[in-house]
């Protein structure tokens, strides 16, 4: 009984850490403009819209976070092997991993922006100085929280994977969940704030991103502030639920029915999310649209 209570406590803590990690990851990627919406940041100067948005997408978020968190976890693991206190080891490992992220962000911004020189896009050094440190700060929170939850899963819950391997697995999952949830909010709602609410961006408007703020030109810190209102927290809750429910079903139900307990609970959770998804979809169809008259004959 005591071990189950301990397991649930660790599970809750890991879920909370994952929530923080997911939110920080999405805000970091939006400030750095690393996800799929970056295609528009790259496209804008080619369409004649010069901007002051940061631009560091060289890899997608999942492999990038897989690298940084595996690196942080690997270094933390090495420090722990040197008998350094785990908390200090995780802080040191995450700190070094963040410097790699900083180098990556700097070279990516310089390289990608310089490639747009023929379209008249300047490399803004003040943007480089002020944005890079902010993305690094958010990346540190995401890496530290994820490495810590990996350490809890390994040391307290007894998962067989070593810390660096867990870092790679959950780093890729973090990037996948964060980019899937947060990208549309940044891409549609922020970059195309001048387009109508409640409709997708017409393909003809591609590249015409919003470049001016309340005062002066918009920069990526404004985008971070906007993402922190919904895209970031939603990504956090998404990744937090993934980690929490995956651990919860295993810790509580793995011993039930020779392993079948965790499977049945997992299937029930999937069905619950399916019902919620369908409810939201139907709610949207009743309350929004239709945009045009229903078509009588299928014309696929």
């Amino acid at each position: 009984m005591e071990s189950i209570v301990f397991g649930i406590g660790i599970t809750a803590l890991a879920g909370a850490l994952a929530t923080v990690a997911g939110a920080a990851e999405n805000v970091e990627s939006d400030i750095g403009s690393q996800g799929d919406p970056n295609s528009q940041v790259q496209l804008a100067p080619q369409m004649g819209y010069i901007h002051r948005i940061f631009n560091k997408a060289v890899a997608g978020e999942p492999p990038a976070y897989g690298l940084w968190i595996a690196l942080g976890a690997g270094l933390a693991w090495a420090f722990m092997a040197m008998q350094i206190n785990p908390i200090l080891a995780i802080v040191l490992g995450s700190g070094i991993a963040v410097f790699v992220q900083g180098v990556y962000a700097t070279t990516a911004y310089l390289g990608r922006t310089a490639s747009l020189a023929k379209f008249g896009q300047p490399v803004y050094l003040d943007i480089l100085k002020s944005m890079t440190t902010v993305t690094m700060a958010h990346a540190f929170i995401a890496i530290f929280a994820t490495v810590t939850l990996c350490h809890l899963i390994n040391a307290a819950l007894g998962h067989p994977f070593p810390l660096p391997l867990l870092g790679l697995v959950w780093g890729i999952a973090l990037g996948a969940a964060g980019s899937a949830t947060g990208n549309p909010f940044y891409g549609k709602e922020r970059q195309y704030q001048n387009q109508k609410f409640g409709a997708g961006v017409p393909i003809a408007a591609s590249g015409n991103i919003v470049r001016y703020a309340e005062a002066g030109e918009r920069n990526s810190l404004d985008n971070g502030w906007f993402s922190a209102k919904l895209g970031g927290p939603a990504s956090g809750v998404c990744f937090g639920l993934i980690v929490f429910l995956e651990l919860w079903r295993t810790v509580l139900f793995e011993q039930v029915g020779a392993g079948w307990g965790a499977i049945i609970i997992g299937i029930i959770i999937i069905l619950v999310f399916t019902v919620i998804d369908r409810y939201i979809e139907v709610w949207a169809r009743k309350n929004y649209g239709p945009y045009s008259k229903p078509v009588e004959e299928a014309s696929s």
Partner: peptide, 10 residues
């Protein structure tokens, strides 16, 4: 499970 939660949030 991971895909169900992610798709629901999308």
């Amino acid at each position: 499970l991971m895909m169900a939660i992610t798709c629901m949030f999308v």
